[in-house]
Nucleic acid binder design. Sequence first.
DNA 1: GCGTATCAGGCAAACGTTTTACTGAGGAGT
DNA 2: ACTCCTCAGTAAAACGTTTGCCTGATACGC
Lengths: 339, 339
Amino acid sequence: MAGIVDVAAAAGVTVGTVSRVLNGDPAVRVRPETRERIHAAARAANYTPNRAARALRRARLGTLALAVHDVSNPVYAAVTAGAQQAASRHGYVLMLADVPELARDAATFSRVVNSGIVDGLLLLPAGVDADRQVAAEAAGIVPTVIVNDSADALASVTLDNEAAARMATEHLIGLGHRDIGLLELDGDTERGFARTRGWETAMHAAGLPVNTAWVRRGGHTAEAGRQAMGTVLDRADRPTAVMVASVLAAVGAVAAARDRGLEVPADLSVVGFHDVFFAQYLQPGLTVVELPLRALGERSVELLLALLDHGEPEHIVITEPAPRIVVRGTTARHRPPVR
Amino acid sequence: MAGIVDVAAAAGVTVGTVSRVLNGDPAVRVRPETRERIHAAARAANYTPNRAARALRRARLGTLALAVHDVSNPVYAAVTAGAQQAASRHGYVLMLADVPELARDAATFSRVVNSGIVDGLLLLPAGVDADRQVAAEAAGIVPTVIVNDSADALASVTLDNEAAARMATEHLIGLGHRDIGLLELDGDTERGFARTRGWETAMHAAGLPVNTAWVRRGGHTAEAGRQAMGTVLDRADRPTAVMVASVLAAVGAVAAARDRGLEVPADLSVVGFHDVFFAQYLQPGLTVVELPLRALGERSVELLLALLDHGEPEHIVITEPAPRIVVRGTTARHRPPVR
DNA sequence: GCGTATCAGGCAAACGTTTTACTGAGGAGT
DNA sequence: ACTCCTCAGTAAAACGTTTGCCTGATACGC
């Protein structure tokens, strides 16, 4: 393995100069030809700085961790990809961790967070107490950013969940629906509350009545959504459309309608949250409101990096690009029942 | 942050002694009371060795990477958990990486693998060329273990996929089925081949004919399984049972049957691979063959650690605990059609 | 011709461990 | 009295960078 000394020898300068040039130190004064010699030597030797040595000197490791509550939830894939890319662009490496794992195994948690193996933590909480505790504890040790949620004193980046929920609801209203239900997220998350607020705001703005019997916790899995939707559909009076605050629960809601012999979208329109890859493979394709998940990942990394450079904890709301309705087969114009 | 010098000062010894004692150097000679003083001082100062410094000196970072082809596949959750635990137990930290990400972004790949940020790599390939290339390239740079597959010269740990497939098929045969189809994995993976072999072996052993029209590539997603199963079910002659080499494809197979008005398990028995958490939430619950995924993760880490200590690349097959059939609602005794 | 900038890079300390080689004190053996 | 041994550590080098402070040479203004 070639070290900086080899490069320096090959270029005929000292290691200090090599270090400055390769790191783009703006205060360095070298003539262009020397600079070129150094770069050539580094390339020839296939030089890669030793991370351990650099970390020791800089007191920074160049590693960020992204902890999600459930790695297998497809919604996180886009967030991860965005974060990965942003980290990469800034010369950082992103590692993934499981929040429940972190919470359960104290030894792992302290090893990951406490021993300087990561410079910062991105946390995507699910609204359970354990998550909040992990967040608070982590933030005391290492710079931490809450992703798509917020916690009082901690830095955070969220999507414009309220606007998205409003758009989803307005889409249904625009199709002529008046009896509109809501399947909320479970867990006490700011993003969950925001989506509920958006739905309410749109309903009020349109002068539509809010029927609390049509509001249920739909959770964030298909099965939970199916159950919740079922309890709504089993009532004598039922809505003709529903906004579901999660994709997976929306899939479950569609299944619940089918279970009861109802046609989607003829008898029930369903709109979900987040345009995950399989939404278009379903039959019928799921109408969703798309949020900039990728940007969420990117901005979160950028905020974390700013935090590392002694920036102040901020609350950022991503409003650009704006949420967008992706209309597929699960929503249709309201047809008043034949009487 | 307390350093080793602080501990040494508090204990009234030199840093070298502290280091030896804390690391359990067997060749160290200290009297018990000194040893106790050192431990007490370390505890009091809440001393955590600086990873960067240690890594620099030891030329080893204490970090392993687990690269899976698709983070959102729930099958990997158990493997990850096992690997996480084993790594933890040996004082290592496990980070997750995405293989496609690694393959796509050369900069990320080289940063992760090349620059000594990880001491070793666990690779769970999907059988596409890009994965194989990543594996070969990575193995040239850093100790690498292939998980649940194998590649000629590389170390690997696999499950007993053939035995599992045999058991799954025998379960169907035991229920009286004679017309048994197969949905294979896609991608050219050893585990895919092994599962196909297991099915064939069981069929031959029972003296049952193998109908190649009932053998399709079922892929590893629900949608792919649905398509593949559909092409089989649309034939005039169709099987009464099918072994599906993936859980997600098995879910798709059940959906395909429903699409055509067939009852599961009355008209078609389905058995899948791997007991992921949602198999029991489906309606009807999915019968699967359960493989020791957790042990797979653990053993893989252990092999990798052995490799780091200059062990020889080995091929390990996990036969203990043995595969196990978990019978749920998608398999039933064969009822000969009424004529 | 002299002081003073500016240029182009050199020198060496520092980061916090681990590890190799050594040492001073006390006791045993001859 | 001398060597030799064991005990219980000590002293210092090394790991590969980064970075604050220097320095020798050339150019410039007067």
